[in-house]
Structures are given as C-alpha cells and as structure tokens.
Write a protein that binds this DNA or RNA. Structure first.
Lengths: 136, 136
DNA sequence: TTCACTGCAAATCATTTGCAAGGCC
DNA sequence: GGCCTTGCAAATGATTTGCAGTGAA
C-alpha cells in the first residue's frame, strides 16, 4: 500500500501517516468531502488526528497540485445577478472573475440523465492583462 | 428607474429601497461581488445599511431565482483527489457531488485569450435517483 | 393592527494562526 | 541538534440567529 506514498512523493510531499491516510481517502472515495467530513471519518482510524492537520494537509495537497479545491472561490460566496448559464474565468493573479459568453447547455455529457437547473463552466488561470505585466 | 422594481416583483420579491439598490448593483456591475463587498460599497449610498440586510437580501434573491450564488458549494470548501479536468454535478436534493466524464479542455470559448491552469464544469440540478423518489 | 423588513448584537461555523511538544534525518 | 510535522487552544472571518424597532398595507 505504499503506492500512495509514492504518489505523494511524486508531488514533492513527504509521506506521513496522516497524509497517506487523507490522500487514500480522497482517491478511494470520490465524494468531494469537506475538511470537516474528512476529519470526522479519519479520526476513527487515527484517533489523535487534529482538524488543524486535516486543514494543513489539504492546503499542502492543493499547493503541490496533488488535489484540487473545487469551487471558483473557496473562501467567500460570490453572487451573480445574471441567472442565465454562462462561463466564469477567475484570474489567479488579480482575483477578478470575468464572464465568458458560452453555449453551455448544449455541451452536457450524453450519459447524464438528471434534471439540470443551472450549468456553469469555470476556468482558473491568468487573464490577458496580468499576463502582459509579468510575462513568463 | 423602477425597472429594477418591476424586475424584483417578477420574481415575487417585494421591492424595498435596500433590495432595489443591491439588485441594481448586481446587474450594473458584473464583478461577482461577495456579501462583504456589496456591503462596503452600498453603505456609501445607504449609510444605515446593515450587513444582515445584505445577507438576507442575497439569500432571498437566490431563493427566488433572481440571482445565483456561483460556486458548487457556497458554504464549505470541497476537495478532490482527481486533478484531471472533469465535470461535477451537484444534486440539490441529496447534496451529493457526482463526477461526470467530460472533455472540458477542448470546449473553451474562442474569444478567450488568457492562460488556463484549471477548467471545471459544474452543474446543479436533481440527480436521477432523487428524481424517481419525487417525480414532478 | 398586522406583518414584513430592517438592523444591531450575540452566536455559530469554518478556517487560520501561534506555539509548544514529538519525531525523523 | 535542527527541522519538519503534529495538535491543542486561541484568534479570525464569514454567515446566521434572536430580537426589538420601524414602517407599509
């Protein structure tokens, strides 16, 4: 079972007992858990686990690219007066969220059978303006 | 300028001074503000405005369908061990977030010129299982 | 008069920070 | 020993709740 250990090392993450367990949970269960959910479930296996470690570990995973935090803004709720489906682009440098015109509704996967109320596309990256300031 | 007033009424929202001002801000500025940002800007025009009213109003707008809260989960950060671009579907009834296979990267809008680091597609609606329980 | 709307203050919930102790190289 | 990791406790920040005053129908 040290395949997870190797997986973490590949991202430059030193594999500790806690980190391996959290990454295993994340890859074994595709439930997109919150930090709280991970904490509650994992403490059964690791009773000494602290919530701080869960937060630290998840933040580390995201920073190193081993996991993602889904959602365009992880910290605050953001509101939009436009209720028609459209795409959002969030610039990681300036933090702005820009609208993109996009025909989203006709791009749903064919194997999907539920009812759609809202459909969004969001992209994270660097916007044109910020890119010009600091070219790579 | 009572077009906003009519707009709100159309969603079953009684138009008050505060509600009209917040909706006007939301539709005039497509900046996807947080509640905090709205509060800070609006208090210049309405000095007695309270943060509670901003939160109440935004929640009312979302409930009535006059605005949306962008992001798949407005309350908590959710994590995903799969770092490949894929689509997420969130069921409004059971709250689950389900993965959808989807070729996202080749569907970027043509008028977009920034650099893309991450691209996500998310859908909110009712999943098949919940739909069977309570058919419309 | 009644009921919805507002706003203050306090409470709650998620997340972060400060710091001390433990473990590994 | 020195550094990284952990975890407790306290702090912070966002959001919600309780409640009383105010205003419109």
């Amino acid at each position: 079972m040290n395949s997870i250990s190797q997986h973490l090392s590949g991202y430059g993450i030193r594999p500790s007992v806690q980190r391996i367990a959290i990454m295993r949970y994340l890859t074994d269960n595709r439930t997109h858990p919150t930090a709280e959910e991970i904490f509650e479930i994992m403490r059964k296996q690791i009773p000494t686990l602290s919530k701080t470690t869960v937060y630290n570990t998840l933040k580390l995973f995201v920073r190193q690219g081993a996991a993602t935090c889904i959602g365009i803004d992880e910290k605050n709720a953001r509101f939009d007066g436009c209720v028609k489906p459209h795409a959002h682009f969030r610039c990681k440098k300036c933090g702005r969220i820009i609208d993109l015109e996009m025909d989203i509704e006709h791009q749903l996967p064919g194997n999907f059978h539920g009812t759609v109320d809202e459909a969004y596309f969001y992209i994270k990256g660097t916007c044109e303006a910020c890119h010009e300031e600091t070219p790579s």
